[in-house]
Simulated scan of single mutants.
Amino acid sequence: MNMSEIATEGLLYKQAEQYIRESYHERSVPQSQMLARLSDIRDEINEIGTYNHTIEELTYGAKLAWRNSNRCIGRLFWESLTVIDARHVTNTDEMAQVLFRHIREATNEGRIKPMISIFPPASSRAVKPPRIWNHQLVRYAGYETESGVIGDPASVAFTTTCLSLGWRGAGSAFDVLPLVLSLEDGEPSLYPIPEELVKEVPIAHPHIEGIGELGLKWYAVPFVADMRLEIGGIHYTAAPFNGWYMGTEIGARNLADDDRYNMLPDIAAAMGLDTTSAFTLWKDRALVELNIAVLHSFREHGVTIVDHHTAAGQFKRFQKNENDNDRDVTGRWSWLIPPLSPATTHLFHSSFDDEIKLPNYFYQN
């Protein structure tokens, strides 16, 4: 996001008014309070060029952004989101401490809690907005070597940045990257995540011993860290959030994709499959067993996870809830269908309007 995207005062009030009217109505706030609040917002914008959300507005806006997230299959639980208000932080040391708290409390020893931490918003007067440079708060490094990538190929560029800032990993396939944070001066600061905060799950199969012998593991919680949260015209450029994993995110993408860990050939070898021809469907068989291993392992270690059939059923309940409240359900079909056996879910046979509603989360450079 560049600063030209920050709303002008007139547009900002219109965006604020739209959000306040919608959210106050849903929260059953009396109209007199809503009108008084709009008057205060107008005065604040006229005085300082922006306005500040109340904690109630911030909390409900983050929840609505989840409800409006077209790519998310887990929106049934949007009302359960816990919001950490971190708008008070003034330096990256404080920022890091908030994020460490987020990781600890959201992980919750495996009983994962949906959570978001919201840092100071972007300002038209700032050179650069607050940012978390990581794609996810917890992610594995990727090291470019002469014989190929060790670790996660998706992390090679960011790993190079961390190395240039002085970080040194062990060089394994599963090194947890540090946090890289910046506030309005734009200067990056590096913070290794305390090892005890990062819960990881070793991957084993209930019946195929060879899969467990591959030494695979994955971190427990997907903390998305690089998206922008927009609520009522205010842009929160550092607002990491998490739910819990759907098994296919790990078993059919992170560990399986050719441009990620590319483990299907190794899984097939552990299963003794014939990989000389695609006609044997060895990739499909290996993919199913890898996903069984992921679900089994997370359950064995007491970490919240959902399979794609249950997640699709939960989304159907979300659709019914929204329809019962006279709200249209938007979505991006290509993201909502699971990457494993999508035709076995109702989502594959559905269509969705990909209209972007506000509040929402957006990608940023």
Rank of each mutant, 00 (worst) to 15 (best):
V127H: 09
R168N: 13
S164H: 02
T145E: 13
G110P: 13
Y143A: 08
S172K: 06
L181F: 03
P192D: 04
H102I: 07
S147N: 14
I193L: 02
V89H: 07
T145V: 12
V156R: 05
Q136F: 01
K113C: 12
Y143I: 07
P130Y: 05
L190D: 10
L163F: 00
S80E: 14
A154Q: 13
P129D: 05
F158T: 03
L137A: 11
I193W: 01
Y140M: 03
E109C: 11
A122G: 15
G186A: 08
A122I: 06
G148K: 12
S164P: 05
D152W: 01
V156T: 12
E144D: 14
T161D: 13
T160P: 00
S147Q: 14
D185N: 15
I84R: 11
S172F: 00
T107C: 09
S80C: 01
T160Q: 14
E79V: 06
S182Y: 05
T90H: 12
H102S: 09
F119V: 08
V138C: 11
A141S: 08
K128Q: 15
M95Q: 11
L163G: 00
T160N: 14
I103M: 07
R111C: 13
R87F: 12
T82Q: 14
C162Q: 10
E144H: 09
H135F: 13
G169Q: 04
P120Q: 01
R75K: 10
T107H: 08
F77D: 13
A157P: 04
T145C: 13
I150R: 02
S155A: 15
T92I: 02
L179E: 09
C162D: 12
D175K: 02
S172N: 07
R104P: 09
L163R: 14
L179A: 09
P153D: 03
